[in-house]
Nucleic acid binder design. Structure first.
Length: 708
DNA sequence: GTGCCTCGAGTTCA
DNA sequence: CTCGAGGCAC
């Protein structure tokens, strides 16, 4: 067996670093043994040796509970993770990229970087340009040169552990030489056109299912629970970036990627360095020209700022880095007939038109529905009244050109007026809710028409319940959108509180639930257990789950942190009205404005709504929110910058401070904790002195937050 | 008032 | 993933 087997250093003598290394090795050794046992029917180690590995893993975890890995073997049962793959937290987030479709947007991207860094327009900036592979991204963790973990992107923060499958891909080395002790390589798994065609032919021959396109084939192959199947699939890999590192790879993007190639990873041969905007656009055009002959799918070109120190200074927006951009190729389109326009009613009452289409293949996927957004979109206008599609409106029976925005969401790009059936009438947008008949009103300046039925509208009621059980809200296992709809239809659940009384009303002996289609004793018991588990709910989730208009996940987090407990939150929302101290406190939260405040107080002032909330709360045990215990010295502090900053721009300083958990304000007030004053600071510095607020200079700030 | 940037709410298909 | 709108800095 491998190093770190049961015969290593006694557990009592391990230090933390050794323990961490060994847990990683044990996880992959056990993983490998599991896969061999369960999927290849050919155990590679004896049962006794396997048990010893598990026992040692448990002993180390007991001594160092903090080091317990998210993919810990102790969480697995019989080698197969319940519910598919184990979740793994990425040591550094896997990013997505901002998109551009026009040259002008690329120019704006470059100009924006100059602005952010405070560089003059003529200052040279170099970028890398490389094809954007249409596959799935993968993060490979190497410790001491050995592949210990492979994870999919997931939501960027948490992905799925696909280590056993990644090991079967020949482009991915198991070991690398002369590498940093920790190296996370990031890249794209994809499938060649030839391999895709051969795979589909083979699948068809065996009567198996064929894949719609190489991307789906690659995704389906990588996410096989049985890695023997993955092994039989011709997957390939290009490395283009990195995550956590024990030491920097290089000073530039280009050289860093060359180093990855040096470690033995395939890197894209078309990647090159561009010294100017013109060179970037030329590179884009050149790659597009070669697109059809590459042998694999690409959907654009990725630009990255070459200088890694500058990348660091630019930092991140909420989900995308400021230093990279995906410049997409024009989307594939297809013509089809629009059979009908239907209206869906959302949780807030929004009436959304949907196009029912004659099925048509766009970009390798059969599309039968497309969003039509709103009234104006159908009429051929944007929100400002300017014409779109040359002002052509959309009518039932029209021939329409479909594309998939971002290669995902089907949309109507154009209408063929020449083929419009005679007698086709302009679409009359309904002025009453198709579900409940209440008037549907469009507020001045709003682009959507909303059903005014509120709680009496069945569509809104169901959508609100779906929202309530959604992932960022109560997230009850076994109670998804479909189940909620079925329960609602039978009158078992009509409002959130009903979920928590379901067992007492229908669960006795489980008879009634068992009689429902698709429910057995086991699944019913599981559902009730999952519901019980969620009686205790973090305040943030609860606030989000209420589904108050304008209050999403982020706002719910802000509110939970501000008020801490449900009682404090509820009291404040009940008492807040313009002019009151509670109202001021609410508006004082950075990110809450009048619209949101009005929406919140209105919800708590509405009797029916309020009764619904009260019935729900009676069923729950709300977990108070804790102030984020950031370890930065400025976390939670309000900072003001004034005067001239010499080593960073204003935007940069602000982004940095916020990344460390500080709130950046524009003017000094009693709420200010720290003033950073550069040369030329005037009235703000004076005011800070009067208020006795701590004031430091730019160097003091850099020292405080650790370097530049 | 204008111009970011971020968030909310809507959307499809496998 | 995208659009529109809310919130905030300038």
């Amino acid at each position: 067996m491998k190093a770190g087997g049961p015969d290593g250093i006694p557990v009592e003598e391990l230090d933390e670093a050794q323990a961490r290394d060994e847990l990683a090795r044990l996880a992959s050794a056990i993983d490998e043994a599991d896969r061999a046992y369960h999927t290849e029917d050919a155990p590679r180690i004896s049962d006794a040796a396997y048990d010893a590995l598990k026992a040692r893993n448990a002993a180390i975890e007991a001594r160092f509970p903090d080091l317990k890995r998210p993919d810990s073997p102790s969480k697995r049962i019989g080698g197969v993770v319940a519910e598919g793959f184990a979740k793994v937290a990425h040591a550094r987030r896997m990013l997505s990229l901002a998109n551009a479709f026009e040259a002008g947007e690329v120019a704006e991207f470059v100009a924006g970087i100059r602005r952010f860094l405070g560089l003059p327009a003529e200052a040279a900036l170099a970028f890398t340009a490389e094809p954007k592979i249409d596959g799935l991204s993968l993060s490979l963790r190497y410790e001491a040169g050995r592949l210990v973990q492979a994870a999919t992107r997931g939501d960027g923060a948490v992905g799925e552990n696909v280590t056993a499958n990644a090991r079967t891909i020949s482009d991915i080395p198991d070991r690398i030489e002369n590498a940093p002790t920790l190296l996370e390589v990031r890249g794209e798994v994809y499938m060649h056109h030839d391999d895709f065609a051969a795979l589909n032919a083979r699948q068809a021959e065996r009567g198996g299912r064929t894949f719609a396109n190489p991307r789906n084939a690659a995704a389906g192959s990588l996410r096989q629970l049985d890695s023997a199947i993955t092994r039989s699939r011709p997957l390939r890999f290009f490395a283009y970036g990195w995550g956590a590192l024990s030491e920097p790879l290089a000073a530039t993007q280009m050289v860093a990627v060359e180093r990855l190639a040096g470690f033995g990873f395939p890197t894209n041969p078309l990647m090159q360095r561009c010294e100017s905007l013109e060179a970037m656009l030329a590179c884009w055009a050149a790659i597009e020209q070669r697109r059809a002959t590459l042998g694999y799918d690409i959907d654009g070109v990725v630009y990255k700022l070459d200088d890694l120190a500058l990348q660091e200074r630019l930092g991140m927006r909420s989900t995308t880095p400021r230093w990279a951009l995906a410049h997409k190729f024009p989307a594939e389109t297809a013509w089809t007939r629009l059979e009908a326009i239907d209206i869906q009613v959302g949780r807030t009452g929004a009436l959304s038109p949907v196009a029912r289409l004659g099925p048509v293949t766009v970009g390798g996927v059969v599309v039968a529905n497309a969003t039509l957004h709103n009234e104006d979109y159908i009429a051929g206008r944007d929100s400002r009244g300017a014409p779109i599609r040359d002002g052509k409106d959309i009518r039932a029976g029209d021939w329409v050109k479909i594309y998939r925005a971002g290669d995902v969401i089907p949309k109507v790009a154009d209408v063929d007026l020449g083929r419009r059936p005679s007698g086709a009438e302009p679409y009359a947008f309904p002025e009453a809710c198709p579900e409940c008949g209440s008037p549907a009103i469009r507020e001045p300046g709003d682009s959507v028409r909303r059903c005014t039925g509120g709680l009496i509208c069945p569509a809104q009621a169901v959508e609100r319940l779906k929202h309530f059980v959604s992932r960022a809200a109560f997230d009850i296992e076994g109670l998804g959108a479909k189940q909620v709809e079925a329960f609602w239809h039978d009158g078992w659940i009509t409002e959130p509180a009903d979920i928590f009384t379901l067992q007492s009303r229908y669960g006795s002996g489980l008879q009634q639930l068992k009689n429902r289609e698709g429910w057995g004793e086991k699944s019913a018991a599981n559902l009730f257990a999952a519901i019980e588990e969620r009686r205790r709910i973090p305040l943030q989730r609860l606030i989000f789950a209420l589904g108050i208009r304008h209050v999403g996940e982020a706002a719910a987090g802000l509110l939970a942190r501000q008020y801490g407990t449900w009682d404090a939150f509820e009291a404040a929302m009940t008492r807040a009205e313009p002019g009151s101290a509670e109202w001021e406190e609410l508006l004082g939260i950075n990110g809450v404005g009048e619209v949101m405040a009005t929406s919140l107080t209105a919800a708590f002032a509405n009797d029916a709504e309020r009764a619904l909330i009260d019935r729900l709360i009676a069923q729950l045990d709300v977990e108070p929110a804790v102030q984020a215990a950031g370890d930065s010295p400025v976390a939670g502090k309000t900072v003001v910058f004034t005067g001239t900053l010499e080593k960073m721009t204003r935007a940069e300083a602000k982004a940095r401070a916020e990344a460390l958990g500080a709130r950046v304000a524009g003017s000094v007030s009693a709420k200010t904790d720290l003033l950073v004053a550069g040369p030329g600071a005037g009235s703000k510095a004076k005011k800070a002195a009067e208020l006795g607020i701590e004031t430091i200079d730019e160097d003091g700030w850099l020292e405080l937050v650790g370097g530049g």
